[in-house]
Design a protein around this nucleic acid. Structure first.
Lengths: 229, 229
DNA sequence: CATATTGTGGACTAAACAGTCCAATCACGA
DNA sequence: TCGTGATTGGACTGTTTAGTCCACAATATG
């Protein structure tokens, strides 16, 4: 697993939807974490449909009743896995997502995304995007969870672009929201092509295009550095 | 059979070339088609992992042995479904794909893609792209089949852009191959966002950006019509 | 018309699966 | 220390699954 699933799970925030039980004791919390962790790994490895509760049981040493004690049913667990996966994806990029209010920051972000795919030899695609293809039409609750995750991701870019506009780095008629969406599309599509073709260059090409498109909304005022590439 | 041991060895040997049997009689061909058709529908409806051979059996009235008579095993059937799905996707667009050598033709294509998503209320995403998320990491044969399908699709655009370049509609330093890839990424990403958010505007935004990016490679020679949008 | 090839029906196996249930064990507050 | 609720173990059910096997029917071909 390359997106390294070892981040803390924000159980409090998302499970306020009170679908699955929040453990009262430390031991219970640890067990729930262990189950979620293993389930997330298994979903990443074998796909959402390929993860079985017996797999989770085997990997965690938990018993059947524990799964149903902490989660409503299989679908509930999968939905929680989506949240965990989203958290991981965003946490991994956290440092980069803070600086999307400059061309240099955006370039660093794009470069890191490509670098990661090079390391993984193009395998895996986007953890969130892959889940979309697997679950969007099958489970509307899962679809909503994926949409929420994607939004949290996109928001970082939209906010960064909005700051750039406020700072005069983008034209007055630039639309940070639309620009963010178009960029996310290039990222997701580039990752999909990279995954299918096992070639990180696909993402590089998509992101170069995304960058060029963003540049079209750049303020034409002089002495903006970072233009050349 | 008497020489069962021989058969074992031979079937291993031949299984490379003999993936699925091509029927000799008309009736057999019809049965195979029926199975393939139903399987493709079921994969579209319930996902690749969600399609069971019993589903296919129920929908076609075929018997178990027929499935294994015409297809090696479940994976073989799924791979054939990928091919069928690709054919459908390309056939549906066939008329539009022929005219990707003009800005107007590209616009018509983009408009049709958006229109389709509006009709479907954003459901379904890209039939090929969805399969990618489901199968790319699970079955390398399927991954290859999806890559081949995507290539066939992208080739139409690449060829169109190459013709535009030859006609002087694109700059001499334009790279039709990279432009086609970046455009495909926007399509796939835009479709994914549309699917997850149930909003066809997501694809529109992605395609507007893709168009703007293509335009950056437009020849700067005057009296090119179709500039305004 | 004979017969070899191709196509079809369906019983059968063995495994994997989600989900239920109850009794045993643990941990924490009174 | 006691008791109550949280936690855990694991047997059990019933269903669904992919895949095998063999006998029978249809069809082509000489």
């Amino acid at each position: 697993m390359v997106w390294s699933l070892d981040c803390q799970v924000q159980s409090d925030y998302f499970s306020l939807m009170r679908e699955s039980k929040v453990p009262a004791t430390g031991r219970g919390r640890a067990t729930r974490e262990r189950i979620l962790q293993a389930a997330a790994e298994l979903v990443a490895e074998k796909g959402a449909a390929g993860m079985s509760l017996d797999d989770v049981r085997a990997r965690t040493g938990a018993s059947r009743s524990q799964l149903y004690h902490y989660f409503e049913d299989r679908d509930d667990l999968v939905r929680k896995v989506i949240d965990v996966t989203t958290n991981v994806v965003i946490d991994v990029q956290a440092g980069l997502l803070k600086h999307l209010d400059s061309w240099a920051g955006i370039d660093r972000w794009f470069d890191a995304l490509v670098e990661l795919q090079v390391d993984r030899q193009g395998c895996g695609g986007c953890p969130i995007g892959s889940l979309a293809g697997q679950l969007a039409e099958r489970d509307s609750g899962a679809r909503a969870a994926i949409a929420a995750g994607l939004d949290r991701w996109e928001t970082h870019l939209r906010d960064g672009l909005a700051r750039m506009k406020a700072l005069g780095k983008l034209r007055h008629d630039a639309d940070p929201s639309a620009l963010a969406t178009a960029t996310m599309a290039s990222i997701q599509g580039g990752l999909l092509l990279t995954q299918v073709r096992r070639d990180a260059c696909q993402l590089r090409i998509a992101l170069d295009a995304a960058r060029a498109n963003l540049r079209l909304s750049a303020s034409s005022r002089p002495n903006q550095k970072g233009d050349a590439r």
